[in-house]
Design a protein around this nucleic acid. Structure first.
Length: 888
DNA sequence: CCTTTCACG
DNA sequence: ACGTACGTGAAAGGG
């Protein structure tokens, strides 16, 4: 018989987590009456998430009964420093309890005890009764309750991502047992619960002491053997404190709980109660998931009226003279090759749908789509340009692009699913594709016309209805120009680049591939010989076993699943065993072979011998593009071996050349501009080698002193570090110097470039105040974690606060240049084609006779794209293949 | 589906 | 004491 399953939830800690996870958006989550709802919302998310995977027979949510407990009675200071719970949270607690009840779970609290103790006690009883128990908490302290049959899930990020603690996992991760963890806490203390632990002992020290002596008792039994040290003194002097802390840290497992496990049967969701509660709370998305139309909300998708378009009624479309919405359904993400499933066209109360895309080529529709005087609103204009181009239609006159506008408003919720995105904007008149089409293997376009067509019609209407609201937001954010002057025209430029494609010579790749295959076979044999056995070299797990167990090489670094075998690690092992060099070379060649030879061969279109990538315009958090299917933005260049791949990238016509122009140090120039730093600006205005002049400044060289290559290299790394949001540790790792040394470099840098230092301080402050940062074109990135209490999340947000305006403004600049460049090529009647964008570089193919003109034109367009306080510099190259590019 | 590794700017 | 450089995508292995 399968074991009964028990779910125990630490109510208070989850509510706290949920509240603080969404704290930066505290005012977005309120109902009509101004009641804050973020914590309730988060709690519900957590419940759904847990119940999706774990199907309990019994379930209970434990709450704290009040401020005073047996712990506070014993130790007046316990939790004494804790800030008062804000009103915005306490007002939500009654509703969380209602939610728990309506969801069919029991709740329980006990005077003088904390929720932890209730959970500890019930978990123990459940273990004895043969249950399998899952505890969910936001508090790591509960991991002490893990046993063979009790798993503790602790929230990691937000409230839905959890880390599952079993005794084995704890041993692996922390190196102690759940019971020992209590003693670790006793030594290290807990600042949030306000008990101190032993002076100068933190987590690392505590763990190693407990590992050595087994327990707190073990330490004190053997304290005399410990060699004389400050630590030993502290341990002896503070034994009483340590014992007290142990008592505080230990969760009770014998609390006087009256309820029995048998009383805790999980009832399942109580539909009516939930609906009533969600309506009160304004939880439209949860109601929509339950297929309930929110009161006063949008009509359900099924109500929408539509007409199936046929050859006989197609004339009706001539009615469409004003703004219309259009959506072409392409089920595969890759719209270069996706089949066409159907389309919707219309406005207001008139929506026409069909599965027959050939109808689009009939003049009445084709003219509509190609007429730039009739505005078409859609979702993902770029996909539509490409898709319609395949049908021989030249789409013009795009007005509102729901996907693109949503991305500009908030890069954080950037789904490619129209329905999901509509829900983000509180519009529930359309379902998500996942709901209608299914997901994974089961995803398919429904056979039922009613189902499919009403979904299409709902999409058309969703686009139409969201236009006004989102356009207004663009204006409020000062992003209208960013949309109409940059992103929207860029979508057409990108579509044309994708359609143009780049010619890749399969024969060149195949020849390289067969040579690499031989080399791989040799390397493989050599590695097997040195290892003394055959194994899968591509498996990091097997490789780790060979290197660190069989060959006993020193372990440099561990990953969360085992030994790290990354390049940095292998390089440190070089010279210790012959096998290492061979593995490094094998890795390099295997990467080229799999990703760039076989990978690229797979995506050359047989019809034209070209590769047609897709640029994702609405993905990155900074405004950069990304490239997929395949990624043409990471073709090897740094190492000669890989660089040869570029020999296969050729012009698509005889007598044509590849031409490329790239911005030189664009990010540092943007840095000089946005920080206003005088010294940095002057160096660029004077046309200095920026890494050299940085070296000169931070190493305090006299005018007659030489900058050594090593100084320049280090200064270069500092410059990069500044752009990335520097930390002494990160820099020290990068250039292999001590952390102290790295710290000095950074201090010197800030002394020499005070404007940069001031900028960093200001941008972080600004991000904290307004919740987002901006680029020179008002592109936004929200940083909800900038106020996080978690050090590492907050630090990350601070680094991105300073990096995003730099990286993002550089992205803005090249986007503007691309639009102007496309216009110029057309206006001048040039045959040259823009093919690729690689963040700071544009690649073209052109007839040889146009090369002199491009050499003038492209740099001019690129360096005048925006006016900064420092000049932009552009360098151009030309060649017969991408590999052969040479400056000229 | 997630993790690790490695390719690019 | 914390735990790290910023932004991406693809392949491979292993659950």
């Amino acid at each position: 018989m399968p074991k009964k399953q028990l779910l125990l939830i630490d109510g208070n800690s989850i509510v706290f987590r949920a509240f603080y996870a969404m704290h930066t958006q505290i005012d977005r989550f309120t109902n009509q009456d101004g009641l804050h709802t973020a914590a309730i919302y988060g709690f519900k998310l957590m419940l759904d998430h847990v119940l999706d995977k774990f199907h309990p027979d019994a379930a209970l949510v434990a709450f704290d009964a009040g401020k005073t407990t047996f712990r506070t009675k014993k130790y007046a200071d316990y939790k004494a420093e804790r800030a008062k719970t804000p009103e915005e949270l306490t007002e939500q607690l009654p509703y969380v309890r209602q939610l728990v009840k309506a969801s069919g779970l029991h709740s329980y609290e006990l005077k003088n005890y904390e929720a932890d103790d209730i959970i500890g006690t019930l978990a123990k009883r459940a273990d004895q009764a043969g249950y399998e128990t899952l505890i969910v908490s936001g508090d790591r302290d509960l991991t002490q309750l893990a046993t063979e049959t009790t798993t503790v899930a602790v929230t990691k990020k937000g409230v839905t991502q959890t880390e599952h603690f079993t005794p084995e996992y704890m041993m692996e991760k922390l190196g102690v047992t759940p019971t020992q963890f209590i003693d670790v806490k006793a030594l290290m203390g807990d600042s949030s619960d306000n008990y101190p632990g032993v002076t100068k002992i933190g987590e690392k020290t505590a763990i190693s002491l407990i590992q050595k002596y087994g327990s707190l008792d073990g330490i004190y039994e053997n304290i005399d053997e410990m060699k004389k040290s400050k630590r030993k003194e502290n341990l002896i002097n503070e034994e009483d404190i340590a014992r007290q802390c142990q008592d505080l840290a230990r969760i009770r497992r014998d609390a006087p709980i009256e309820v029995k496990l048998a009383d805790l049967t999980y009832q399942g969701p109580q539909q009516e109660e939930l609906v009533e509660l969600f309506e009160k709370l304004d939880f439209k998305s949860f109601l929509a998931k339950m297929n309930i139309t929110p009161q006063g909300g949008q009509k359900a998708a099924a109500d929408i009226k539509f007409t199936e378009l046929t050859e006989s009624n197609i004339g009706e479309l001539s009615k469409l003279k004003s703004r219309i919405s259009f959506f072409l359904e392409m089920p595969d993400a890759n719209y270069h090759v996706s089949p066409f499933a159907g389309f919707v066209i219309g406005n207001g109360d008139h929506w026409w749908v069909s599965r027959n895309v050939d109808l689009l080529t009939t003049p009445v529709i084709k003219d509509l789509l190609e007429n730039d005087q009739i505005q078409k609103d859609t979702f993902n204009a770029k996909a539509h340009y490409v898709g319609l181009h395949r049908l021989g239609i030249d789409l013009q006159g795009i007005g509102f692009d729901l996907l693109l506008v949503s991305y500009l408003l908030n890069t954080n919720d950037n789904s490619n699913d129209l329905g999901q995105l509509a829900h983000e904007h509180d519009y529930y008149g359309v379902q998500s594709d996942e709901e209608v089409y299914g997901k994974g293997k089961g995803r398919h376009i429904p056979d039922d016309d009613q189902v499919f067509f009403s979904h299409l019609a709902a999409k058309g209407r969703a686009i139409e209805e969201l236009n006004a609201k989102l356009s207004k937001k663009l204006h409020e954010n000062e992003q209208w120009a960013l949309y109409t002057d940059i992103e929207r025209p860029l979508s057409l430029v990108l579509a044309n680049m994708e359609i143009a494609g780049v010619h890749v010579d399969a024969t060149t790749l195949k020849n390289m591939g067969s040579k690499l295959k031989e080399r791989l076979a040799e390397l493989e044999q050599a590695i097997y010989d040195e290892a003394g056995e055959e194994f899968n070299i591509n498996s990091t797990k097997q490789l780790g076993t060979i290197l660190f167990e069989k060959l006993q090489l020193p372990v440099i670094k561990k990953t969360k699943t085992g030994y790290s075998t990354s390049v940095e690690v292998l390089e440190k092992l070089q010279g210790k065993a012959l096998i290492i060099d061979n593995i490094l070379v094998y890795r390099q060649i295997a990467k080229i072979q799999s990703t760039y030879i076989t990978g690229l061969l797979k995506v050359i279109h047989s019809s034209d011998q070209k590769i047609h990538t897709r640029y994702l315009q609405t993905l990155t958090q900074t405004g950069r593009l990304s490239s997929v299917d395949p990624n043409l933005q990471n073709i090897p260049v740094r190492l000669e071996e890989g660089r040869k791949i570029r020999k296969a990238f050729k012009p698509s016509h005889q007598g044509w050349k590849i031409f490329s122009s790239d911005y030189s140090q664009v990010e540092l120039r943007v840095l000089a501009h946005v920080t206003g730093d005088h010294a940095l600006q002057q160096d660029f205005i004077d046309g200095k080698d920026i890494h050299e002049s940085t070296a000169r400044r931070i190493f305090n060289l006299l005018p007659d002193e030489q900058v050594t290559p090593n100084m320049r290299r280090q200064a270069k790394a500092v410059n990069f570090g500044i752009v990335y949001g520097i930390s002494d540790y990160g820099l020290s790792q990068n250039i292999h110097v001590s952390r102290k040394q790295a710290h000095e470099f950074i201090q010197n840098y800030f002394k020499e470039f005070p404007g940069v230092k001031e900028y960093i301080e200001n941008i972080v402050k600004k991000a904290r105040q307004q919740g987002y940062v901006e680029t020179i074109t008002h592109r936004r990135r929200y940083l909800p974690e900038i106020n996080s209490k978690n050090f590492s999340r907050r630090s990350f947000a601070e680094r991105t606060a300073m990096n995003t305006p730099i990286q993002g403004s550089a992205a803005d600049i090249i986007k503007i240049a691309m639009i102007r460049m496309a216009d110029k090529l057309r206006d001048e009647g040039l045959h040259a084609k823009m093919l690729l964008q690689i963040h700071d570089e544009l690649i073209f193919e052109a007839p040889e006779e146009e090369i002199p003109r491009l050499k003038e034109l492209v740099p001019k367009v690129m360096d005048s794209a925006v006016k900064l306080d420092v000049p932009l510099k552009v360098e151009s190259k030309v060649g017969d293949t991408w590999y052969d590019l040479k400056k000229f």
